[in-house]
Write a protein that binds this DNA or RNA. Structure first.
Lengths: 117, 117
DNA sequence: ACCTTCTATCGATAAACGTCTATTTATAAT
DNA sequence: ATTATAAATAGACGTTTATCGATAGAAGGT
């Protein structure tokens, strides 16, 4: 690392660097896509409501009141999380039911454990 | 839950709901603030580079080349992560050194374990 | 067939974001 | 003092985002 050699080099250049990405660009994009779909207080509350619900699933109308959001906004949040792979949607009758995609969640949890301090 | 009682009620209303937030609004905002600061491929790569670096810290100029971003852009990403509490900054001489804030990271990891499927 | 209820989609708007170039500030070396 | 280097800040620009009201579609009950 050149910064250690600063004193001995005429030009005190900073960074020859290893220049290695250290994580695949694809992986970074995939994970960041899921994180982006989570990075909102209302969405975190949606997850909390799901996991504290009796059957581990909710419909849209379960959420509008506790979140104090309109129905289209709630639908939008849910759709984003589905398309990021965090939630799964199942339509039964008139209702749409949303539950956690456990493998996606495990992937995220794994990322935070694996990328240790 | 009213959806189970649908048949017996005259108005088939959907959701009396518990209406409990199930997670503190503050907690949701704090966590989502950190997630927002992470939800970008370049920022994830910054973390990866930090944790694969010998001393677990990097300066700005370590990052511009592997990320193929300009110096102000890299500074911006780092500043956002610092202000979200994910990174810590220490200025030594001309360089600014950034390293992971391990307690913030543990808080995140804990969130993903605790909020189990 | 009609009405009601639940959800999705459309279009709009204001805010936030990622990125750049240009400039300024801080620190060190000559 | 001057010069050189590292990093931060300011300003600009195009894109994405969260939110809403209005509307459309889908499904069930009468």
């Amino acid at each position: 690392m050149s910064r250690i050699l600063t004193l001995s080099s005429q030009v005190q250049a900073c960074c020859p660097t290893n220049a290695e990405p250290a994580i695949a660009r694809e992986t970074a994009s995939e994970i960041s896509g899921m994180l982006k779909a989570l990075a909102d207080p209302n969405r975190l509350q949606i997850l909390a409501i799901i996991s504290s619900s009796e059957d581990q699933e909710v419909c849209v109308c379960d959420l509008t009141e506790p979140l104090n959001l309109t129905q289209p906004t709630v639908s939008h949040h849910l759709a984003k999380m589905v398309s990021a792979g965090i939630l799964e949607k199942q339509k039964r009758g008139t209702w749409s039911w949303y539950r956690l995609n456990s493998s996606a969640w495990q992937e995220l949890a794994g990322f935070f454990q694996f990328t240790k301090v």
